[in-house]
Design a protein around this nucleic acid. Sequence first.
DNA 1: ACGATGATGAAC
DNA 2: TTCATCATCGTA
Length: 201
Amino acid sequence: MPADARPLSFDFFNRPADRVARDLLGCRLAVCGPDGTTTRHMVVETEAYLGAHDLACHGSKGMTARTAVMFGPAGVWYVYLCYGMHWMLNVVTGAEGVPAAVLIRGVVGQAGPGRLTRALGIGREFNGRRATRSTGLWFEPGMPVSSRLIDRTPRIGVAYAGDWAAKPLRFVVDPGRLTMVEGGTVRAARRTRSTGPCMRR
DNA sequence: ACGATGATGAAC
DNA sequence: TTCATCATCGTA
């Protein structure tokens, strides 16, 4: 049984989205289900949406009824329906007035933002609510993940965003190098064999 | 009121 | 590559 961890708080989220997205890897998304049972899921994939200047970010089109929460304080859920059927779970980051957020794209066992929310029973009811224990959906710190284990790639599905489409703002824990130990510790998988020159850095 | 459009996922 | 499916937002 994991000891109760202190949820990630405002200070964690009140930073640029790319830093939050990176640091969220290895952390746990905790959900308290309707039956009162809390489940924890290690975050392994995120995307950063940086603000009004980021053309892939919803907030770049200005404030609307949907995107208003992105302009608000950090540490609040931004949940919206995508393609008419998938709920996207984001957490607002950065200073108030800056429309930035991090999309939670994957946790261990659930790849894809739409599948993740479906599996955890997350829907629009969390939109605008804070990521705290009291709302039933929050984050807890995990084992820090070494940068060696993290891939950075362009974000998915934002080809329309001009120069911003290619920015490496998607963060993924390389599953081939992730080892899950009892208790959820993240470690580098043992290198089984070296077939070529050792890649440094 | 109407039409275009997705920060997807699954099937073919 | 096609399609399911619908809230959102610009346009009228």
